[in-house]
Design a protein around this nucleic acid. Structure first.
Length: 472
RNA sequence: GGCGGGGUAGCCAAGUGGUAAGGCACGGCUCUGCAAAAGCUGUAUUCGUCGGUUCGAUUCCGACCCUCGCCUCCA
């Protein structure tokens, strides 16, 4: 079975076959955040999706080079820097650190490389230079450099590879910002923006005068620098299809004359409580907002991973509560397996664990059908619980089952986020006291202790092997 | 107006030309002195509406209704 992915370029499912002649190395680029504020839950859906792609490719044995940029120069950032009277780097570094912490909270593996746009200005200038040389870019009277769609098309290149475009039918004008009126054509986009007074100290020198890069150019420059002029996989949110990714293709192919990216994958947006997120509706959440409500990164990750990446997903607080229960079911099962396996944690998966891995990969191979993959996980949980309850599992079999779970969890990334809570000694003492009371049939006392523990946030679970304390 | 997604149980969400995964919630049962955010188990004659193709459609085709996204710097 081969991994198939939906390629936005072809609008079909295609077998995933990396450019590497050995079929091992995969270059993967995901458009990262613009660090003007804390990222919201919608942003994170895309990054968790990218993490899933990377992890699954690694699961399938590919050697992935995962690159994600940080956009640390942009209109909104410049505006805030000016308003707050701080230095660009100080402002953006703070947001960037918060963002990376958030990624950790969500159990996302750090991309192998996290380039900042401002560290690649010379590469961007070089790329713009190539476009000027090839005659597909021009300097307008406002001194900014623009990419000419017409000239690009004149070279036999295709503009509109990711989305069918019909310029005549497009609603032009609404959102064309005032600083771009000197373009030759409304479809043209900025490669280099000439310095204006509002930019303050945020500018760089270039052969065309002082200024700063346009938005799209950074991704072309950084991805080609780090992954080569043609690479395997480019990801991003669906809203980036046009214009951002279309323009990346134009800039890159316009400069190199080579295909830019083999597979484009786009994650759908999410709705929150059935509506598009907006601050006025009160359904706009940053990761930190949700943590403050008492949800964990793990629950959020699970919920974000519960639906297929190409479907709009309805993210709800109820769903988050449900995620807690669903995860507890897995945790219970895994904890019981650990207990039974004891020190034998070097198991190789056999039997039902192999079946789990098989069903999991079959699902994931089909364009990352993660919902079906979870289905396989939960059926395995039920079957494992059944056998656990029936005392049918040996320590070796438990270790084998664990090995199976750990294999799929290296993709799902849920287990590592499970915090083992230590029971405070005074609570253990209370638990023992309750046991003594129960033995003496002093149920009034034992129930009082149970209530006491509950008030302290711990719930007792009586098992055939004796009572256990679980953090509420 | 152009382009592209969706409408499957109370909620979330897979899927298939042959009769509906999984999760949450809910009910039953087991365990328990009683419990339990423990375990098992049950729950959609039905997949937006109306037509068509077919032995058979939720799945294919057509029309319609509703909904969401993109259309120049928003993941």
């Amino acid at each position: 079975m081969a991994l198939r992915v939906y390629n936005t370029l072809s609008r079909t499912l295609q077998d995933f076959q990396p450019l590497d002649p050995d079929g091992q190395a995969v270059g993967m680029y995901c458009c990262g955040p613009t660090v003007h504020d804390f990222a919201h839950i919608g942003n994170f859906r895309t990054f968790v999706f990218a993490d899933l792609v990377r992890r699954y490719l690694e699961f399938r044995g590919f050697r992935v080079n995962h690159v994600m940029n940080i956009t640390d120069v942009e209109d909104k950032i410049i505006k805030r820097v000016r308003e707050q009277g701080v230095k660009l780097a100080d402002f953006t570094r703070e947001r960037e650190n918060a963002f990376l912490e958030d990624l950790d909270t969500l159990g996302c593996l750090r991309p192998h490389q996290i380039p900042r746009a401002t560290a690649f200005i010379s590469e961007m200038i070089a790329l713009i230079g190539r476009l000027m040389e090839r005659g597909v870019a021009y300097q307008a009277p406002d001194r900014s450099i623009y990419f000419s769609i017409e000239k690009y098309r004149g070279c036999g290149c295709t503009y509109g590879q990711l989305q069918k475009l019909n310029f005549e039918e497009m609603r032009v004008g609404d959102r064309v910002s005032s600083d771009e009126y000197e373009k030759e054509s409304v479809a043209d986009f900025a490669l280099w923006k000439a310095r204006v007074p509002e930019d303050g100290e945020v500018y760089w020198d270039s052969p065309w005068g002082q200024g700063r890069p346009g938005w799209h150019i950074e991704c072309s420059a950084m991805s080609m620098k780090l992954l080569g002029e043609t690479f395997d996989l480019h990801l991003g949110g669906e809203d980036l299809v046009f214009p951002h990714h279309e323009d990346e293709i134009a800039q890159s192919e316009g400069a190199t004359g080579k295909p830019f990216v083999k597979y484009w994958m786009h994650g759908a947006h999410l709705l929150v409580e059935g509506k598009k997120m907006s601050k006025s509706l009160g359904n706009f959440f940053t990761l930190r907002d949700l943590l403050a409500k008492g949800f964990s990164g793990r629950e959020i990750r699970y919920l974000l991973l519960s639906a297929h990446y190409r479907e709009t997903f309805n993210f709800t607080l109820d769903g988050l509560t449900g995620a807690k229960s669903a995860l507890a079911r897995i945790d219970e099962c895994v904890a019981k397996l650990r207990e039974l396996a004891g020190s034998r944690q070097d198991g190789t998966s056999t039997g039902s664990a192999d079946e789990l891995i098989g069903r999991f990969s079959t699902a994931m191979d089909e364009d990352l059908n993660v919902s079906a993959a979870w289905g396989a996980v939960f059926e395995w949980v039920r079957e494992t619980n059944r056998r656990l309850a029936g005392g049918e599992l040996s320590a070796a079999e438990a270790a084998s089952a664990l090995a199976g779970w750990e294999a799929v969890d290296r993709v799902l990334g849920i287990g590592a986020l499970c915090e083992e809570s230590q029971v405070p000694p005074e609570l253990s003492a209370l638990l023992e006291e309750r046991q003594a009371a129960r033995k003496a049939k002093d149920f009034k006392r034992s129930d009082a202790i149970r209530d006491e523990l509950k008030a302290r946030g711990w719930v007792i679970e009586d098992t055939p092997k004796g009572p256990r304390l679980k953090k509420l």
